[in-house]
Design a binder for these strands. Structure first.
Length: 479
RNA sequence: UCCUCCUUAGCUCAGUUGGUUAGAGCACAUGACUGUUAAUCAUGGGGUCCUAGGUUCAAGUCCUAGAGGGGGAGCCA
């Protein structure tokens, strides 16, 4: 008989039907007469209750059904006598597929700390929290492709290995096949990359944007969704060395179109989670409330599902950098000297305390900040007529800060080359990028969404290491 | 990288002013129990007090250095 997934059994109303279920035991409990086995196979947050007659199966077999063991159960779906579930399965046959020594197995039927589970990342898929996150993550991946497909965008695979080191988004991991213990040298004593695999120095990508722009300048509307690598020594709950980024790039879009798309996109993803992952979101919401029990009421976060609906139902606030600075300058915490970095005037980059004030205290909604001073933004952003600000946009979310960073791109060849000179970016190496501005250049825009930051928001988790299966961070590449 | 806190049983944590044999809950083992919901009750086993030095009659406790982890900051998505 073909196995039935636990999620399907729990939805079933076919009382009396004989089925086979396979999965991992979460707990076993019971009395002299009857045992109850909570079985989970990863298809749903809920467990299937298996009822096993003690006399029928005997102590020897039942004792092997420890937390973590893998079993196959043949049995009949019945209406549950207990109150915790609608249906359960009365076992006719139980087979142990994989034993699990309870003294060695680290997972117990109890609450574990997220830090401990990180140390046993190879087993954390077997917990409620991480299986819920994995299912939500999958739903979000699917929803990303759905959204863009429905809008006629084309998914483009941009390179993971790149020879350009001028993407301007941070430190890069080097890629080489050369023997690091015996590096070939040129006559001047420099490392001779002409002998390397690609004949030049190469790195892992920090962004697919530049290649994405090339694609958009022919395909119209494209998006990338791939791994991204940053070798920054960032030790925070919001940064990874290896993460997944979604970067749409659209020809003929100006900054307003870009913002409209970003807002529509985020709302689509959140709605998709609410429509398709309610069981898991409810579990994650309870988990979060449990975790925050010890906190003071004003420090607790908004209930997860309520928070997601709130973002869905409200327009994002759009304002310019200079408007934001004015609000911050006149704000209570600034006047009372409560900011660690007081706002004196225009020009400096906003600190996260300022972003958090705007999003969490002042507007209490997601905020899109635009038109930043050119000095604090990348070379490819389109200059405004004032010659001092660029058409950048950062989407700021409560708790996680910058979830999207994007801009309208500079499409004018001369202006772009000038900016590259000012910022010491070698234009010769970027000839292919500049060619798009020489041949049929058009206004275009795009942005980058950090997929794991979206996951933080949707799941309510606090640490980015818990929303990716195998986090890579400084000093950690385990599993 | 900077600031700050933490590291005691398999897990979560308590351990007073430096002072006998280092504790609790959960987990595990054994037993009891007529359908349980992280079942319950009883009994039992279980320790490199992160590592290396130092102070002291005496260190889980104080000092120094290191390792690992958490939170915050910077860089950003």
């Amino acid at each position: 008989m073909r196995r039935t997934k636990v999620s399907d059994v729990l939805k079933s109303d076919e009382i009396g039907k004989e089925i086979v279920v396979k999965g991992w035991v979460r707990t076993r409990r019971g009395s002299k007469q009857v045992n109850f086995i909570a079985l989970n196979d990863g298809s749903t947050i809920h467990n299937l209750q298996i009822v096993a007659d003690v006399e029928k199966f005997g102590d020897e077999l039942l004792k092997r059904l420890t937390t973590g063991s893998a079993i196959s159960v043949t049995g009949e779906i019945i209406a549950s006598q207990g109150s915790g579930q609608k249906v359960e399965v009365v076992a006719k046959a139980i087979e142990v597929i994989g034993d699990c020594d309870a003294n060695e197995y680290p997972l117990q039927p109890k609450k574990h700390s997220l830090e401990f589970l990180r140390e046993i990342g190879h087993l954390r898929f077997r917990t409620n929290t991480f299986s819920a996150i994995a299912r939500v993550r999958h739903a979000m991946i699917f929803a990303v492709h759905n959204f863009f497909t429905s809008k006629g965008f084309v998914n483009v695979h941009t390179p993971i290995i790149t020879a350009s080191d001028c993407e301007g988004a941070g430190e890069m991991f080097q890629v080489t096949t050369m023997n690091l213990n015996n590096l070939p040298r040129t006559e001047e004593g420099k490392i001779d990359f002409s002998q390397d695999f690609f004949g030049k120095a190469t790195n892992l990508t920090v962004s697919g944007q530049l290649e994405g722009e090339l694609a958009a300048m022919g395909m119209g509307e494209i998006y990338t969704f791939g791994p991204t690598f940053r070798a920054e020594n960032s030790n925070t709950s919001r940064h990874l060395a290896e993460f997944w980024m979604i970067e749409p790039e659209m020809a003929f879009y100006e900054l307003d179109d870009n913002m409209d798309l970003a807002e529509e996109f985020l709302k689509y993803l959140i709605k998709y989670a609410l429509d398709h992952c309610m069981d898991d979101l409810q579990f994650l919401s309870q988990r979060l409330q449990e975790e925050e029990k010890g906190k003071k009421e004003e420090d607790r976060s908004m209930e997860l599902i309520e928070k997601l609906r709130f973002v869905l139902e409200n327009d994002f606030i759009r304002l310019t950098y200079s408007e934001a600075v004015n609000i911050l300058k006149d704000s209570k915490p600034n006047k009372k000297g409560q900011f660690k970095y007081p706002i004196n005037g225009y020009g400096s980059d906003l600190q996260s305390e300022h972003e958090r004030f705007l999003v969490e205290k002042h507007f209490k909604k997601p905020v899109i900040l635009t038109d930043y001073p050119k000095e604090i933004k990348a070379f490819y952003m389109k200059m405004n007529p004032d010659n001092s600000t660029v058409r950048a946009m950062d989407v700021l979310f409560p708790q996680i800060g910058e979830i999207i960073g994007g801009s309208q791109r500079e499409e004018n060849y001369d202006k772009l080359v000038n900016r590259m000179k000012e910022m010491h970016i070698p234009a010769e190496e970027m000839w292919w990028y500049l060619d798009t501005r020489r041949f049929g250049s058009v206004p275009h825009s795009g942005f980058g969404l950090g997929f794991e930051r979206l996951m933080l928001f949707v799941t309510g988790m606090g640490n980015i290491r818990d929303v990716i299966p195998f986090p890579r961070t400084p000093k950690n590449a385990e599993f």
